[in-house]
């Protein structure tokens, strides 16, 4: 089996230091909506300067390099045990090179492991065997500030008047955006999962974030709600950093899962503007990045 450690290290470097083009383009568009000289406009200008500087100097866009969340899709015949070891080696090396901050803290002792390796869930790696020849590894670095403002609702929710339908989903998502204010580093990107159990719903809300910003849901009803939610969230005028302004949310990404008759969960994963996600593909022995 091929050793991909150095290729995965490059994936981590790229993810931490080089914001994807679709996110940068959305941020550039957002600056046009804000009044020149306003705190919101200055925040976005600073953000874009920082994006360029991080790319040029190969330094982390944000000091909170987050939980490294890997999604690995591998063809038949690969060893997930060996792939996990390669990912862990790459993560520890990326920490040594200061592409990542040491972020794995033992919850009982409070001790930081110093190399971003913890138990079986740090870094987080999701494996799925797929058909075909290509192996892909997608990585999201999700910081704690935005993770802390994520939320899960159980419908119906009487306080918000939210029933067990998409109209109810809309209400709880708007409530989550309001509660987050600027604390998740707005303008954010919403990953929303409808259904599932508590655990699968959170996972699906993060997987929804793997889609490009301009790629709507395949489901026409969800695609329409994605657009409406982005537009209505922006009417809240929480604005960049919570300074007040036109852009609070850059995009909404929705997905749905089967649920139990008794349960109707809606889970919102809030991703900060520093939406660090990258993908590597191994095909015919050649690695490419996007």
């Amino acid at each position: 089996m091929q050793d991909l450690t150095s290729e995965i290290l490059e994936l981590v470097r790229l993810t931490s230091t080089d914001l994807p083009p679709d996110v940068e383009a959305a941020l550039r568009e957002a600056t046009q909506a804000e009044e020149p000289g306003s705190a919101a406009r200055n925040a976005l200008d600073t953000i874009l300067m920082n994006v360029e500087l991080s790319r040029r100097n190969s330094t982390p866009i944000c000091q909170d390099t987050g939980t490294p969340i890997f999604f690995v899709r591998y063809p038949e015949g690969w060893s997930t045990r060996q792939l996990r070891a390669q990912i862990e080696n790459a993560v520890a090396e990326a920490t040594r090179k200061a592409y990542l901050r040491p972020n794995a803290v033992d919850s009982l002792s409070g001790k930081n492991s110093g190399n971003n390796l913890g138990d079986d869930h740090f870094p987080t790696v999701h494996f799925e065997e797929v058909e075909g020849e290509a192996l892909t590894i997608e990585l999201i670095l999700k910081g704690g500030g935005c993770e802390n403002v994520g939320a899960q609702y159980s419908l119906p929710n009487a306080a918000l008047g939210a029933g067990r339908d998409l109209a109810g989903v809309r209400k709880v998502v708007l409530d989550a955006v309001h509660k987050a204010q600027g604390q998740g580093c707005a303008p954010g990107i919403l990953g929303v999962a409808v259904g599932g159990d508590r655990g699968t719903s959170y996972l699906a809300s993060k997987e929804a974030l793997l889609r490009r910003l301009d790629q709507p849901s395949d489901d026409p009803e969800l695609a329409e709600l994605e657009q409406r939610l982005t537009q209505e969230a922006n009417q809240l005028e929480i604005g960049p950093m919570g300074f007040g302004g036109k852009t609070t949310v850059l995009a909404t990404k929705m997905t749905s899962l089967h649920r139990l008759p008794a349960s109707f969960f809606v889970t919102i994963s809030y991703m900060c503007w520093a939406y660090r996600r990258r993908k590597m593909t191994l095909r015919n022995g050649q690695v490419s990045y996007e």
Binding site: A43, T46, I47, M49, N50, L53, S54, N57, T59, P60, I61, C62, Q63, D64, R101, P102, N103, V105, G110, K111, N112, G114, G143, G145, G182, C185, M241, C272, W273, A274
Partner: peptide, 26 residues
């Protein structure tokens, strides 16, 4: 500005010292 980490780091001219490093780098 949240997330403007590389830019803000450039304004840090010197690290004069560190206390309680046993709490971890962050």
């Amino acid at each position: 500005i949240g997330g403007a980490a590389s830019l803000i780091a450039q304004t840090v001219k010197r690290v004069l010292g560190v206390y309680k490093l046993e709490f971890g780098v962050p």
